[in-house]
Structure formats: structure tokens, C-alpha cells
Design a protein around this nucleic acid. Structure first.
Lengths: 146, 146
DNA sequence: CCCCGAACGTTAGTCGCACTAACGTTAGTT
DNA sequence: AACTAACGTTAGTGCGACTAACGTTCGGGG
């Protein structure tokens, strides 16, 4: 059982999840915050739905996440007057700062996670996971990442 | 962000988790059932605590899981009269059958998950994940897997 | 021998993430 | 003008991981 890739993947992911949670939680954040702030920081403002497509977060969860981030002063909702259905979500200076904190935390997490692997192996792993990720992402969510 | 190993790992794990959930759910089971039944089938009867150590399931969750499996007729609790604190958990014939069903489901899941990888890559991946798993398992839970 | 700490099973509850269903509003399309 | 699709929102579900507390039982040391 312990050599089944799905077992290894989910178990390793469990450890990874633990590390990620701890890492982010120690700075008072969580995965969704990291994903959203980083996406806004790197790829710029967009609608909530667009953000959801970028980050793989469901619209319903997006609402809650943005409520939190907004309450913390990290993001802003402004009406898109060319389309009254949507908000334009943008990141504040404080949000950028936070995004960088969380990125730093993410890097530390990498190190802890990949500790037993040398550089070669790390590249192998990222390549393989990238392949899996790319494959399974196909045909899955609403693709247009506006 | 998309080349961060932790991002890839957690995202890939998300897909894996989806496939696993779907795969098991389609047969009316879940991950905990698979873990527990397989452990009992492969490594024989033990106490609840022992089972928890084998499978990485918390005692509190073990209780619920065994209640379910017992209600379904897949496992049995018998008193360990040499130690009145514990139950001896064993698997029933129906449970063995179920374990095999779930194992078959797990294999199908493997195929779906690893579809984009050739044999070589699959071995690489298992090796790398195994390394990570082995490393992070150290110093984590109560080790004696009685 | 008794006491105390550890292990066992159990109940209850929390958290993060993923996901579904339904609703009102607004934009396009036909 | 009517219909469909997209948007944001509310509410609720499921699974896995985890914490806290409690009563019972076992084992070892004073």
C-alpha cells in the first residue's frame, strides 16, 4: 500500500498540507489568502470570478476570502461600471506587503518540505508534478482566466 | 507561483484527492475505509490505537470509522481480555471482500492519476515521493505500530 | 499495597479546503 | 422583448486532520 503513488501522493500531500498550514498560520494567514494576494500582486486586478479561475477557488469561497482580506485592509472591491455585475478587485499597498510576507513563508515551507531532496531531485519532482498538474487541469474548470 | 513545488504538490494533490474521492465514492466508500480495511487485511488484527498508528488516523476519527465499518459488517470489535482497555479489531469475510473492492478502485485511480506519465516517470515519482514521505514521517506520530 | 502516570477508547467540537444548490441581478444574443 | 449566460452571494455539505476533555484500565515505583 505504501508504494501506491496515490497513497504516497496523498500522504505526502498531507505532510505538505501540514507544513503549509503551520507555515501560513504562524503568520496568521492561510492558503486562500496566499493564493489570492499573490495572484493579484503578480497578474493584476480582475473580477472575483476571474480571480477564482486564476486560483482555483470557488466563487462561494472567493466571497468569504475577499471579505476577510478586505476586512484586513489587503484588498479592495470597486464597481466595474462597464459591467454592473462585477467588482474589480485590487490589492492595497498593505496587501502587497502581506503578499510578500506570505511568499517568504511559502519559500521557507519549500525548504522544509524538500529537505531530503538534492537539487536534481527537486527539479525532477517539479517536472513530474508539473506534468500531472498540466494534464489534470485540462478540461476541468472554466478556462478563460480573465 | 505555479512552479513552486509546494504549489504543485498541493494542487496536484487536490486533483488526486478529487480522483480518490470520486473513485471511492463511486463504490460508496471513503479514504478512511480503504486505509483501515487494507491495514487489517494486510497486517492483521490489532487494537484501535494500533490501527490508528498504522494508518495515520486519529483515535477520535478511528472510533467513527470503526463504527461505520462495523455497522456495515466489515469489521468486528472483540474484547482483549488480557487488557480490558482495548478492543481487538478484526476484519470479517465481507470486509475482506470490501477491502479488495476498494483496492481495485485505488488501482483505477492510479491509472487515471498517472495517465500522462510513462513507466520511467512513474517510478521516479514514487521514488521521490517515497523519500519525502519517509523523511517527514520521522519524529511525527507515535512510532510503535503495534 | 497503593498511587500515579500512561495508554485506551470515546464524545464533542474546530479548522481548512473543496464543492453543490439556489437566488437575484445584470449583460449579451437572437 | 425574451432567453440565456455570467456575476456575486448565501447557505450548507463532505472529507480529512486535529484538539480537548473524560472515565476506565494497566503497570511500575515508592
Amino acid at each position: 500500500m505504501e508504494q501506491l503513488p496515490s497513497w504516497l501522493l496523498t500522504q505526502t500531500a498531507a505532510f505538505a498540507g501540514r507544513l503549509v498550514s503551520e507555515g501560513f498560520a504562524s503568520t496568521g494567514g492561510r492558503g486562500y489568502h496566499y493564493r489570492v494576494l499573490t495572484s493579484l500582486h503578480v497578474d493584476g486586478p480582475t473580477s472575483q470570478a476571474g480571480l477564482g479561475r486564476r486560483t482555483g477557488i470557488f466563487p462561494s469561497d472567493m466571497v468569504a476570502t475577499l471579505n476577510e482580506l478586505q476586512a484586513l485592509g489587503f484588498t479592495m472591491r470597486s464597481v466595474d461600471k462597464s459591467d454592473k455585475r462585477r467588482y474589480l478587485i485590487s490589492i492595497t499597498p498593505a496587501g502587497v506587503e502581506r503578499a510578500e510576507e506570505l511568499s517568504a513563508a511559502a519559500e521557507k515551507i519549500q525548504d522544509a518540505l524538500l529537505a531530503p531532496l538534492d537539487d536534481d531531485e527537486r527539479h525532477q519532482l517539479t517536472a513530474l508534478l508539473g506534468k500531472l498538474y498540466a494534464h489534470h487541469r485540462q478540461g476541468f474548470p472554466p478556462l478563460p482566466m480573465t
